[in-house]
Amino acid sequence: MNSAVVVFPGINRERDMARALRLASGCEPAMVWHADTALPGGTDLVVVPGGFSYGDYLRCGAIAARAPIMDAVRAHAGRGGLVLGVCNGFQILCEAGLLPGVLMRNTAMKFICRDVYLRIERSDTPFTRGYNAGQVIRVPVAHGEGNYIADDATIARLEGEGRVLFRYADPGGALDPAWNVNGATNAIAGVLNEGGNVLGLMPHPENHVEAVLGPTDGRGLFAGLVDHFKQAA
């Protein structure tokens, strides 16, 4: 799996993401600078990592979404290429129009860093094939604006088309407002685009991939992607 990690000024989880990709695939991902206009040839997966691109100064992800490299990311997605946006990356993909909806301020009005439980809604996608539907995974969140919202029609469509892949849940997998860490609509933690090839996810699976540091529930996402490309090859 050849992956490219897009780095905007202010992005700060690119190393975490690169490590997770390396551990899962055995290949060092290419780090692509925001001012570049093209992705490296043969890129399978584009990852927009977490951080505070441009300080999140206008709106989270707003400025990064308009950076030169984003045209290449859009083109990659347009060709059906896989794109994963995590945390700030999710916000950037929304601002770039690659995903529907907006990530608003957490309802608690605070930045929150803690482990959360996610229920996997489907396992028949390249992003979730490493998990089973209904499985509950434990991964950390670290964000101040992860409260996913969209208009009713969009939400209805996302739900109707099975494009919600991850939801905040209790450790048993039940939906419970007390476990919806940021107050997201329908406890949405991760959504797919219409084509099924662009995923936005608020929590950080890349921080739970090494057994020596604790839980490894984030591995499934990366391992699944590696399998996907192996099978395709």
Binding site: L58, R59, A62, R66, G101, M104, I149
Partner: peptide, 9 residues
């Protein structure tokens, strides 16, 4: 339109 406001919200 392009940057300062997010027309969704």
């Amino acid at each position: 339109d392009k940057l300062l406001a997010n027309s969704l919200i």
